[in-house]
Amino acid sequence: MKTIDLAESSIRELNQALHDQAVECTEREWEVLNPKGQHNIACGLDQNLSVDIHGHAGYFCAGMNKKAHVVIHGNAGQGVAENMMSGTVRVKGDASQAAGATAHGGLLVIEGNAGARCGISMKGVDIVVKGSIGHMSCFMGQSGNLVVCGDAGDALGDSMYEVHIYVKGTVKSLGADCIEKEMRPEHIEELTELLNRAGLDEDPASFKRYGSARQLYNFKVDNAGAY
């Protein structure tokens, strides 16, 4: 295992060392010490690495992740795992706003709570939150799954497309064009698998499903007169 102490090395040095593993992989296990809220830790990884960050991370931690497995043993700032392509990112504490924003793939697990706009414009990532999420989450979410074991804030799933949202607790309000939908056997199966992958012991039957009413997809010809 290789250890990089951010009290001694810069973020650029850390990220360069991790990027070099995409060319030739010499070390699979990495440990990052003293993150102290710095931004852009372990961004742009492109190799099957395991990275443990011990402490709180700043903005965009594990952004653009591909293949790597990143664990933040603390809280994460804005935009954790934003634009992730594959791999996993696990936050042991809370995450700030825009967690998993625009992410295309992989699994993001937040063991605490996530702030506002969790999964905004998500494009295929699976996000599992053990706690609650803030307002405007899954805004314009296109595909993937968002699982929330706690509560959801205002305007959940506003203007969303085809994300499957599962919430166990209460939803403060639904956004435009987001509705509650029936939990069919295939959804129970999907949710069971997501909870298993996230390592959470929750009863899938206690969740409700939300999705798009698909009323905002196309231009309504009745509105043509407005132009």
Binding site: K36, G37, H56, G58, N75, G77, S96, Q97, A116, H135
Partner: peptide, 27 residues
């Protein structure tokens, strides 16, 4: 504010309450 796009972090111990735009300032 209700939109909450401007960042904020709070920290509390028995000795103090601290606020910062980013956690970096509390370390």
């Amino acid at each position: 504010d209700p939109i909450a796009c401007k960042p904020a972090v709070l920290a509390e111990t028995d000795d103090y309450v601290a606020m910062a735009s980013e956690y970096q300032a509390l370390t």
